[in-house]
Simulated assay, not measured.
Amino acid sequence: MTALRPLLIVPSVLPADFGRLSDEVKELVEAGVDRIQWDVMDGNFVPNLTFGPDVIAAARAATDTPFEAHLMIVEPDRFLGQYVDAGCELIIVHAEACPHLHRTLARIRDLGARSGVALNPHTPAHVVEHVLEETDLVLAMTVNPGFGGQAYIASVEPKIATLRRMIDDSGLPIELEVDGGITDTTIAGAAAAGADVFISGSWLYGHQAGKAAGVELLRAVAIESAGLS
């Protein structure tokens, strides 16, 4: 990893108060986050239900900070346009939910958004090998998706390192994101393995000194662990 690649801290709004999402978004922006992730769950691909596009659109006016939609849903192609229209600049789909992944990622770009592909913990890195040219971000899940507050799966770190090498070898400006159980301790292993975007939800919301202090701490540990300090 080089200093030319920024390390980004991105909160999941899954632990937020859903009754005041616009205010929650403003508070996250004031805390210094780099963008905001919306965990979209359909009760089918994962056993939970969360945000539809109208909910995200309602919060979009609260900030100019970029939104990313992590679509943990079956048949994501049916809904891509709705989440782009809701104001999400980055759309992440799961490789496991896309039988025609190349086409899905190309469609996201055609809609004017950046494309991302997520891999569940058990899904090998080589699944994305032949779609890197259509991909702006690869997300290595460090928990099984569907619920917040889960424990970080450290055994994913070798896969993160493999993805880092694949991306670097491609020469493409692809971000490598991790999501699940990211805290001030677990972020170290993910950063050392080569991740450069870090999703934090439960830990960040529960940080005793507040969200801004949590963002600062996560960023500092990631920079040090990546060898950029």
Rank of each mutant, 00 (worst) to 15 (best):
I56V: 15
A57Y: 08
A58Q: 10
A59L: 07
A59R: 04
R60E: 06
R60N: 04
A61E: 15
A62P: 00
A62K: 02
A62S: 05
T63K: 04
T63R: 02
T63Q: 05
T63P: 03
T63M: 02
D64I: 03
T65Q: 02
T65G: 00
T65L: 06
P66W: 02
P66S: 03
F67R: 01
A69F: 00
H70S: 01
L71Q: 00
M72Q: 01
E75D: 08
E75C: 02
E75S: 06
E75Y: 06
P76R: 04
D77E: 11
D77C: 06
R78I: 08
R78M: 07
F79G: 06
L80S: 07
L80F: 04
L80T: 06
G81E: 13
G81N: 07
Q82N: 10
Q82R: 09
Y83N: 03
Y83D: 03
D85R: 08
A86Y: 02
G87A: 02
I92R: 00
I92T: 00
V93G: 01
V93R: 01
H94C: 01
H94Q: 05
H94E: 01
A95C: 02
A95V: 03
E96W: 06
E96G: 03
E96H: 03
H100K: 13
H100R: 14
H102K: 14
H102M: 14
R103P: 05
R103G: 13
T104K: 05
T104S: 11
L105K: 04
A106K: 13
R107W: 07
R107D: 11
R107E: 15
I108L: 11
I108G: 07
I108M: 08
I108P: 05
I108V: 15
R109H: 12
R109G: 14
R109M: 09
R109F: 10
D110S: 14
D110H: 12
L111V: 05
G112P: 05
A113I: 04
S115R: 07
G116H: 06
V117K: 05
V117S: 05
A118E: 08
A118D: 08
L119E: 06
L119Y: 10
L119C: 09
N120M: 15
H122W: 14
H122C: 12
P124I: 13
A125M: 10
A125K: 09
V127H: 10
V127D: 12
V128W: 14
V128D: 11
H130M: 13
